[in-house]
Design a protein around this nucleic acid. Structure first.
Length: 206
DNA sequence: CATTTGATGTTCT
DNA sequence: GAACATCAAATGC
């Protein structure tokens, strides 16, 4: 099982990275010593200070410190006072841009995930949303700024998802730049979060 | 099945 | 004080 962060992360357009991250593996160390594995099936790109929906628009603040840091690290922030969201930083130090990991498909034993997601009724509800997957894998602000190559959360090569199996839509839950097609997901995968009915969904064209 | 609404508290103005 | 890269429960078909 590869544990090296793919080269694709370094200094690359977050929209390309977001697409290439589909099918990659998310490896998370559990406090009990086990390692959880999951396939990334949904991502969103946040392009940088010129992207009105990106947290970098307000400049470097304490919250966005690691968003503005070097690529290949995690940017984890709290949202709505209750949930955490996990991002992978992609562009060079000083440029705040990242890919939000919105949904994963768990691999292997799910006991720990069910324990941390008591509200989940179906298997897909364990991790079909950015806040849900952070709860399921116990990803918190403690992971903010950690290396995605050598830290407690790692991203590694998995199975490549071909363009024909990828769809694109606007990003979910934002109000600015609400029509930019920067959400990428694996077609038909039940672990992908719900797409609002009025969203334009298009095939992925490289 | 889809859509709406209330909870929650940090961040930035 | 407003906005917020969300979630779960409740409601409408």
């Amino acid at each position: 099982m590869p544990t090296v962060l793919p080269r694709t992360f370094y200094d690359r357009d977050p929209a390309l990275v977001a697409r290439e991250m589909l099918g990659m593996l998310l490896l998370v160390d559990d406090a009990d010593g086990t390692v959880h594995r999951a396939r990334i099936v949904e991502t969103e790109a946040y392009l940088g200070p010129h992207d009105p929906a990106c947290h970098a628009v307000v400049g470097r603040t304490r919250r966005t410190e690691h968003l503005h840091g070097p690529p290949g690290r995690a940017y984890v922030y709290r949202i709505y006072g209750m949930h955490w969201c996990l991002n992978a930083v992609t562009l060079p130090d000083g440029v705040g841009s990242a890919v939000l990991i919105r949904a994963v498909e768990p691999i292997g034993i799910l006991d720990a995930l069910w324990r941390r997601r008591p509200a989940a009724r179906r298997e897909r509800d364990l991790s079909n949303g950015p806040g849900k997957l952070c709860a399921a894998y116990d990803i918190t602000g403690a992971h903010d700024g950690t290396s995605l190559q050598r830290g407690p959360i790692r991203i590694a090569r998995g199975t490549v998802i071909t363009a024909a199996n990828i769809a694109v839509s606007p990003r979910i839950g934002i109000t600015r730049a609400a029509d930019w097609p920067l959400r990428f997901f694996e077609r038909g995968n039940p672990f992908v979060s719900a797409t609002p009915g009025h969203f334009a969904v298009t095939p992925y064209t490289p």
